[in-house]
Amino acid sequence: MFEDQIRKYDNLVSQYKKIVSDKFCKQDFIEYNEILFSAHSCAIEGNSFSVDETRTLKEKGLGMIPQGKTLLEAFEMLDHFQAYEYLLKNLDKPLSEELLKETHKLLTEHTLAFRTQHDEHPSQPGEYTTVDMCAGDTIFGDHKELIKRVPNLLESTQKAMDSGDIHPIIIAAKFHGFYEYLHPFRDGNGRLGRMFTNFILLKKDQPILIIPRKKREEYISALRFIRKERTDEYLIDFFFNTAIERMQSEIEEKNNMTNNFIHGINFIQNEKSTSQDNEIEA
C-alpha cells in the first residue's frame, strides 16, 4: 500500500545522509536535532519556546530564560533534553517497561508534581496512572486494562524491528498510534510517544521524525482516525509525508546555501575585476 512512499523515502534517506547528516560533526548534528525535536514536540503540547529560545536554554540553562517564558516551560524543555539524551545513550537496549518508565521519570521529573498537585490521586514520575485518562475530545479506556497491554506493545514492536520485514517508518507509526491510545501515564504521553518513535527510528539508523508545530492539527487528526475508523493508515501516511518533507527541505536548504554563497563570491570577484579594468582604462 505504501510502496511509492517507501521508495521515495528510502531514496531521500540516501541523499540526506550523503548531502546533510554525514557532513556534520556527529555531536553537532545530534544537538541540532535535539533542539529542533524538543522545541516542536513540546510546542505540540502547548510550550511556547521557539527554536531559537530552546537553543539558548540548551546552551545557557536556567540562567537565561527568555522574557515572557515561565519556569515550568523551561523545566519541561530541560527535562525533555535529559530524557532524549538518556535514550540516545541506550540505543543498544530493547524496548521494555523499564526503559519506558525510566525515560518518563526523566521527562517529567520537574513538572509532574506541579501539574498534579491538586489531584486526589497524584502520580509520580516513572509510574503509571492510577486513574482513567482523557485528553482533548478523547476519553481513554479503563486505565488498568490499557496498562496491561503496554508490555505486549513493546514486545511486538521489538519483534517487528528485529525481523526486518516491516519498514521502520511503518513500525514507528504503528507503535505511536497504539501507544497514544494506551495513554499509560498521568502526563507526558505525547512527548514520550514521539520520543520512543524516534528511538525506534534511530535504532534502525533512520533520520529522526520531527513533527512541526504548524502540523499539530494534521497530526492530531491522523491520530483521531485510529479511534474513529480503526485504521492507522492516515498516521503512517502522515509520518512518511512529514519525514519526506523535512529531508527535502534540508537538502534544498543545504544546496541553496552552498550555491548562493559561491554565486556571491563570483559576483564580488567579477565586480572587483570590472573596477580594476575601469581604473586601467582611466
Rank of each mutant, 00 (worst) to 15 (best):
I211Q: 01
I211F: 01
P212G: 08
R213K: 15
R213L: 05
K214R: 09
K215Y: 09
R216C: 05
E217T: 05
Y219T: 03
I220M: 07
L223D: 02
R224I: 07
R224T: 08
R224E: 11
R224G: 04
F225M: 12
I226Y: 12
R227K: 08
R227E: 13
K228M: 09
K228S: 09
E229C: 06
E233A: 14
Y234K: 15
Y234M: 13
Y234F: 12
D237P: 00
F240G: 00
F240E: 03
T242L: 02
A243T: 02
I244P: 00
E245T: 08
M247L: 02
Q248A: 02
S249T: 03
S249P: 00
E250T: 01
E253F: 08
E253R: 07
N255A: 09
N256F: 13
M257D: 13
M257R: 13
T258E: 12
N259S: 12
F261A: 05
F261S: 06
F261R: 11
I262P: 09
I262D: 07
I262T: 10
I262Q: 09
H263Q: 14
H263D: 15
N266K: 15
Q269F: 11
Q269Y: 09
N270F: 13
E271T: 07
K272F: 14
S273C: 07
S273K: 15
T274K: 14
Q276C: 08
D277G: 08
N278Q: 14
N278S: 10
N278T: 10
